[in-house]
Lab assay of single mutants.
Amino acid sequence: NQASVVANQLIPINTALTLAMMRSEVVTPVGIPAEDIPRLVSMQVNRAVPLGTTLMPDMVKGYA
């Protein structure tokens, strides 16, 4: 099963992502692949992401 990127904390809108904000977890539906975590660092979210939410490509500016 593919691990996805999950929010490790509440991430406010327009926040630049850091490693501490993300974790890898096997979830359904599948979100951004966990191997993309290094690429996500310093990218901004375009909405508030609650703790435990799977990051989807449309939630991260410049990812999709």
Rank of each mutant, 00 (worst) to 15 (best):
M22H: 00
G31K: 01
N1E: 15
T15V: 11
G52R: 05
E35V: 05
N14G: 08
V45C: 06
V30A: 08
G62M: 11
A16Y: 14
M43G: 03
D58N: 13
V27K: 11
I37W: 03
P50R: 08
K61Y: 15
S24P: 10
D58Q: 08
G62R: 10
P57Y: 14
G52E: 04
L17E: 01
M43N: 04
V26S: 09
M21G: 03
R47F: 15
V30M: 13
A48I: 11
E35A: 13
T53K: 05
N1A: 15
A48W: 05
V49E: 01
V41M: 14
M56D: 07
M56G: 07
R23D: 04
G62S: 10
R23Y: 04
P38N: 15
N1M: 15
M56C: 07
Q2T: 08
P29V: 07
R39P: 02
M21I: 04
M59D: 08
L19V: 07
P50A: 10
I13R: 07
L19H: 09
Y63W: 13
G31M: 02
D36Y: 10
M59Y: 14
Q9T: 15
T53H: 14
A20V: 14
A34L: 04
L10W: 10
T53Q: 10
T53N: 12
M59T: 08
I11G: 00
D58M: 15
A34C: 05
V30G: 07
E25F: 08
A34Y: 11
M43A: 04
A16C: 10
V26Q: 08
I32L: 05
Q2G: 15
M59A: 10
R39V: 05
G31I: 01
P57I: 07
A3L: 11
D58E: 11
N46V: 13
P12G: 15
V6K: 04
S24N: 07
G52F: 06
R23A: 04
A3M: 09
L51Q: 12
N1Q: 15
Q9S: 13
V27G: 03
K61Q: 08
M21V: 05
T15L: 06
Y63C: 03
A34I: 11
S24D: 12
R39T: 05
L51G: 14
R39K: 14
G62C: 12
E35W: 06
P12S: 10
A16G: 11
V5R: 00
V27P: 02
L17M: 08
I37F: 03
A20K: 09
N8I: 12
A16W: 12
P38E: 06
P57N: 10
N8H: 08
L19Y: 15
E25P: 01
N46M: 13
A3G: 13
T53I: 10
E25L: 06
V41E: 05
V45T: 11
V6E: 02
M22W: 02
E35N: 12
A64T: 15
R23F: 04
T15F: 12
G31L: 01
L55N: 00
P50N: 13
V6R: 04
I37S: 05
A34T: 08
A7G: 03
S24W: 08
V45E: 00
M43C: 03
I32W: 02
N8S: 12
N46R: 14
L55A: 01
T18F: 04
I32D: 00
Q9L: 15
D36K: 04
V26I: 09
T15S: 08
S42Y: 14
D36L: 10
I13H: 14
T28M: 07
N1S: 15
M56Y: 05
I32H: 00
V30S: 10
M21L: 08
A3E: 14
L51N: 10
V60N: 01
E25Y: 09
L17R: 00
V5M: 02
V45R: 00
P12F: 08
R23E: 03
G52V: 01
L19C: 11
V41H: 07
I32T: 02
P57F: 11
L40P: 00
I13P: 07
E35G: 09
I13V: 12
L17N: 00
V5A: 14
M59H: 12
S4L: 01
P57L: 06
L40I: 11
G62Y: 14
E25G: 06
V41G: 03
L17D: 01
V60I: 11
E25Q: 08
S4F: 04
A20M: 12
L10Y: 08
L55Q: 01
Q2Y: 12
M59V: 07
Q44L: 14
G62I: 04
Q9A: 15
G31T: 01
M22G: 00
